[in-house]
């Protein structure tokens, strides 16, 4: 199932959050060879995980309670990784718009496939629609381009640096009904389920469940 959790809510889900930060360590440090910090517990965290910045995580939780995939959101009106570290990809431009959120640390656990990636992006689109957000902006590198293409949700590339596997880009996602239909079919779930996950966290108080 999908969980929407703020940083200060992670502690209520110790297994889920520990496995998320460990999967991030594997994906970003081991596989992608990014210069990220992994602590003695095997968890990868950066300054944008600080609860004081109020990051919002969208997490796919497996039936056994472990992390299957996740991403992290921050509003671009506050501190963001793009504005503080990647603005050179936009000619030094910074992005600050109440209708644009930054998405970082898109991560899939080993064994998670395109269904999980699609489900995460559906959860992201529910967030977009539900919170009046028009765009997600994200930094990603070459291997992720393939994942985005496979799930049928390729971003508009705003700027890039590097070549081949080390090519890093900034992309902009916009909600469209067509991409949502494609994501639903890739994820193999119904729109009602996605909506229910969203409403459980942000919407009207549910009477059942």
């Amino acid at each position: 199932m999908i969980r929407f959790l703020y940083a200060d809510e992670l502690q209520a889900y110790p297994l889920l959050s520990h496995t998320m930060f460990c999967d991030r360590a594997f994906q970003f440090k081991e596989r992608l060879k990014w210069d990220v910090t992994v602590d003695e517990n095997g968890e990868e965290r950066d300054q944008y995980d600080a609860p004081s910045l109020r990051p919002l995580y969208v997490i796919w939780e497996r039936p056994d309670g472990r992390h299957g995939g996740s991403m992290r959101f921050l509003p671009t009106t506050g501190r963001t990784m793009i504005n503080e570290h990647f603005s050179h990809l936009l000619d030094g431009q910074t992005v600050s718009d109440e209708h644009t959120w930054e998405c970082t640390r898109f991560c899939l656990a080993a064994g998670s496939g395109t269904d999980v990636a699609s489900t995460l992006m559906l959860a992201g689109s529910a967030l977009m629609k539900g919170q009046g957000v028009e765009h997600f902006i994200a930094v990603f590198d070459a291997p992720m381009t393939r994942v985005y293409r496979m799930v049928g949700s390729a971003p508009k590339v705003l700027g890039s640096t590097g070549e081949g596997r080390t090519k890093t880009s900034i992309g902009l996602w916009t909600y469209t009904a067509a991409s949502k239909a494609q994501l639903l079919s890739k994820a193999g779930i119904s729109a009602d389920v996605v909506n229910w996950w969203y409403q459980r966290k942000f919407g009207r108080a549910s009477k059942a469940a």
């Binding site: 200060d8 109020r54 921050l74 919170q131 942000f202 919407g203 009207r204």
Partner: peptide, 8 residues
């Protein structure tokens, strides 16, 4: 206070 999402 710890949120940036609108809330009911």
């Amino acid at each position: 206070f710890q949120r940036f999402t609108a809330v009911d």
